[in-house]
């Protein structure tokens, strides 16, 4: 468009196919780095009206924007759905972003075979309720096919989730997986982008991340590369529960207090299970507990709690003096446990 367009009658712009008039303010001359326009963007007639979003509405619109960017930018996205509280929020956000259409992406879950049974029941029920396609790939199957190879004596399936997930991404040629990770969970996650680039080996390179500016997400990939996208990056544990309350979302029963046989290991109460039965001399007790974060049944610490409804959970978390991840043995392995798993392709 030519600069300094003549004033007077409107002219037809050849490129825009619409006519143009001289500007009402600013103009070609305002080339200074700094000008003195004030930030009062609210027209006077609106000064008495309150146009603002509360924190959950702000986090919600940010996450919906990200969901729709995924639908707009990627060809074969998937949503990682475990049945846990964070991915339950993701599903509601997907409904808000895409209804009345069908969800434009399937749900994917890597089943370690060590899940809490309550979690899998909930996962299947919720996917059916939404009419969503649910893809399950199991670590068991990956081991049988030689995709995942357990170390001698290794009981935990945590590490083996990674090759299972990467194989599923390859099988379905997913170019993007939406996950429910949050930056407040863990300090390696605090450095994570909304759009987290992974190379063709699924690796995260924390020192070489794309800068993320404003709400402009660079979703460009070369073949074989893929993206992990985290719409809940800015949510805290408390936000998640407040959102569950506001949206009246159903969650698996193990989040609420219940009676369970527990064994004391490494300063934590773990659920008694067949995979790692109590050893002689270990303290076993019947306690009233709940889970705060859900990992595998062999590594998820239980917290003693009487919170049997969402309100009580919110009160409990607001007063909590340890973080949510404090009850996950998989994160305690070393100070960089999460970073190392993410570099290898963990979500």
């Amino acid at each position: 468009m030519p600069r300094g367009a003549p004033t007077g009658p409107r002219q037809r712009d050849p490129i825009l196919a619409i006519s143009v008039t001289p500007p009402c303010r600013g103009g070609a001359g305002t080339a200074a780095f700094f000008s003195t326009i004030r930030y009062d963007h609210v027209p006077p007639e609106l000064h008495s009206v309150s146009y603002h979003l509360d924190h959950l509405q702000y986090l919600e619109t940010e996450a919906i924007h990200i969901m729709r960017e995924v639908a707009g930018e990627f060809e074969r996205p998937a949503l990682l759905f475990s049945g846990g509280k964070d991915s339950i929020c993701l599903l509601r956000l997907a409904e808000k972003a895409f209804r009345p259409s069908d969800l434009p992406l399937p749900l994917l879950n890597v089943d370690t075979g060590h899940h809490f049974p309550e979690l899998n029941t909930f996962r299947d029920h919720r996917a059916k309720e939404l009419g969503a396609k649910l893809i399950i790939r199991t670590v068991e199957d990956a081991i049988a096919k030689g995709i995942a190879i357990p170390a001698p004596g290794e009981v935990s399936r945590n590490r083996l989730q990674i090759p299972t997930l990467l194989a599923a991404i390859e099988e379905f040629r997913f170019d993007c997986c939406i996950g429910g990770a949050r930056r407040d969970e863990e300090k390696a996650r605090a450095k994570e982008r909304f759009f987290s680039f992974r190379d063709s080996f699924g690796q995260w390179d924390p020192k070489n991340q794309r800068p993320e500016i404003w709400n402009l997400y660079n979703a460009r990939l070369n073949p074989g590369e893929n993206m992990r996208v985290f719409p809940l990056s800015n949510w805290t544990e408390l936000d998640v529960w407040e959102y569950i309350r506001r949206e009246r979302l159903e969650v698996p029963t193990i989040y609420f207090s219940h009676r369970r046989a527990c064994v004391r290991r490494q300063g934590q109460w773990l659920p008694v299970n067949d995979l790692q039965p109590p050893r002689p001399g270990e303290e076993v007790r019947e306690l009233v507990v709940r889970v705060r974060t859900i990992g595998d049944i062999i590594s998820t610490g239980l917290v003693e709690s009487r919170a049997d409804n969402v309100d009580d959970i919110i009160t409990e978390i607001a007063a909590a003096r340890v973080t949510e991840r404090g009850s996950r043995a998989d994160d305690k392995a070393s100070e960089a446990a999460m970073e190392d798993r993410k570099k290898a392709g963990y979500f």
């Binding site: 468009m1 367009a5 409107r10 037809r12 619409i18 143009v20 008039t21 305002t30 460009r220 070369n222």
Partner: peptide, 24 residues
């Protein structure tokens, strides 16, 4: 975004438009 590598190479802030559109 740089073509090929797809690296994000710059953040830009636009100056005021020389003219505003006026639909016919």
């Amino acid at each position: 975004i740089e073509p090929g590598t797809h690296a994000t190479v710059a953040a830009g802030m636009l100056h005021a438009p020389a003219e505003v559109i006026r639909p016919d």
